[in-house]
Design a protein around this nucleic acid. Structure first.
Lengths: 326, 326
DNA sequence: GGGATAGCTGCAAACGGTTGCATGAACATC
DNA sequence: GATGTTCATGCAACCGTTTGCAGCTATCCC
């Protein structure tokens, strides 16, 4: 049915191994022969069968990309960039969604293991122990987490969070609340520490509220408490939380940024559309860097490296001077 | 290195073919033998090699999902649903982004052909001729387009667009502008026709403006013309166009919905966050339906079916009575 | 008790490539 | 002119699994 190497060999009068070499080690075949083979191949519309190739080479040319929730606006730019970048090295990408469940994540990795050369775990929920165990089967690169001994790409929220608090201090704010995210999140841990340090540096008083669900509902749920605290600005774990808070506040007649300035994290498209000041996460760059690391890891024995990317504040309409200021 | 069927055979004292049957045709093996094989397999951590299996069965257990732009908020819910649904039948999904380019789309399909049992084309840019040609290599299901002879899933914007114009008429609007999208888009064609009919039904005068780029910029670019037309409401090709228009209008001091009511299409998360009235597209349901159709097509010879899903209006804060009304 | 049947299992040939090794030709070296 | 190299190609085993066929055993029927 499909045209195989055998058909090409027949059509060009050479042995299959010569056809094979034409495609996988062209320098080993005479240039005239090569031309003949290529002509026959393209006339027949030959395409190497990747599954067959994988069987002997143990390289599938496929990568896995495992994320918690494809529909969370944080992920698509990363997926897009990773996929496009992988394609440049002729790799295909399986994308899988774990629905935020560690069990699903594990099963996905196991079932992909025989079909991929490596996998990208973005903000995995799995225990470090299990990640280490599974990494024996498949080379991993981890994004936004740092398990010992594995290559990682980190988007360090610290720099952007520092800029955010500096920005708020500059506007005249003195009392700021941090809406924290999931305890297990590496980003959240960095965010908490960075916010604390930056608050001190800028003479701000920092309140904490959380952990919160990293969703719009999570943000909406704490609107009361935020108002009760008497803070004039809030920094949220992510854009969804920030936007949930904004919506709830406005529903209650409070003004953003008039009564409360709000800063998100991730700088998703939604933040852009809703004019939310936000800390930009370089998701596309992270996707590309992770693919580079992964492809490198697949082919080399070098010790795994870690790439850390900085973040930066993008100021929009959700921040302004506090109510008391002139 | 990896544990194979051979290791399991050795460990359980049977021939490899018996191990194979235990996994792919369990009823053919004695239940005691089966138990022994399964025990050995799980002790060794055996997982069938899908590439090898694909070689003999000509079924890879993989599907392709090809979209124009992963980062466009319209797609992720569809991708998520399709992937989750495919997983239930033990299929993995390659996700690929064409960057809106027909050439890339074609190359992607060709390079995936040997590795997938079928592919989902979502709003493809390819010519019908080429789609037909390629469908000889790979079974397709097409979403939001209707090439002859191929199974398709359509999200029919007509019903929702009708509701939108009815809603606007009910609020007292009389002059409405339709911001059209790409000419080649099936959705756009349906939208234009449906809007025309619904306008007539509801006694509205319908202006058209377009074709517009289906992006925020596309919407922002026509703000002037919209104002000049004297319409009091706009229905946009999609949410991005609608939001671009809203932002530009507000930047110029016009009020939405005070001066102009705006309705989008897609009902993306962004529309929700930005309180945009929008026509909901059942993307998740479409993803699932498409996978069903595809899996069915892969295994059967039935003539291809078409699934049409209705849409409906979701009213939010971007629509209100026109300026003149009491 | 003999033949047919059903139920399991083993054998070996695929599936479509890759690759180490052997072979042969052409050419250079001394 | 014998020897050694290099280059190009063919040969055949192998990658891990499936599957048609054949063979064996036990059971059943008359």
């Amino acid at each position: 049915m499909a045209v195989t190497i055998k058909d090409v060999a027949l059509a060009s009068g050479v042995h299959v191994s010569t056809v094979s070499r034409t495609f996988s080690a062209a320098h080993l075949v005479n240039s005239e022969t090569r031309a003949r083979v290529l002509a026959a191949a393209s006339a027949l519309g030959y395409r190497p069968n990747r599954a067959a190739r994988a069987l002997s080479t143990r390289r599938t040319g496929n990568l896995g990309l495992i994320v918690a929730d494809i529909a969370n606006p944080f992920f698509p730019p990363l997926i897009k960039a990773a996929q496009a970048h992988a394609r440049r090295s002729d790799h295909h990408v399986f994308v899988a969604d774990t629905d935020e469940q560690a069990r699903v994540e594990e099963e996905l990795i196991r079932s992909m293991a025989t079909q991929v050369d490596g996998a990208l775990l973005v903000a995995p929920r799995l225990s470090n122990r299990l990640i280490a165990e599974l990494s024996a089967d498949v080379p991993f690169v981890v994004v936004n987490r740092q398990p010992a001994g594995l290559p990682a790409v980190l988007m360090d929220v610290a720099s952007g969070a520092g800029q955010a608090l500096e920005h708020l201090a500059g506007l005249g704010h003195r009392e700021v609340v941090l809406l924290t995210g999931p305890r297990a999140s590496w980003t959240n841990q960095r965010l908490e520490r960075a916010a604390e340090e930056a608050a001190e540096r800028n003479g701000l008083r920092l309140h904490r509220l959380g952990p919160n669900q990293p969703t719009e509902e999570g943000g909406a749920a704490v609107a009361d408490e935020v108002l009760a605290l008497g803070a004039t600005a809030a920094l949220a774990y992510n854009d969804l939380v920030a936007l949930g808070l904004v919506r709830e506040l406005r529903d209650r007649g409070a003004s953003v940024p008039g009564d409360l300035s709000v800063v998100g994290v991730d700088n998703t498209d939604t933040a852009r559309h809703c004019a939310l000041t936000s800390v930009d996460m370089p998701t596309a760059a992270a996707g590309r860097a992770a693919i580079d690391l992964l492809l490198h890891r697949v082919t080399s024995e070098d010790p795994p490296g870690t790439v850390t990317l900085d973040t930066r504040l993008v100021v929009r309409g959700s921040t302004a001077a506090p109510p008391g200021a002139r």
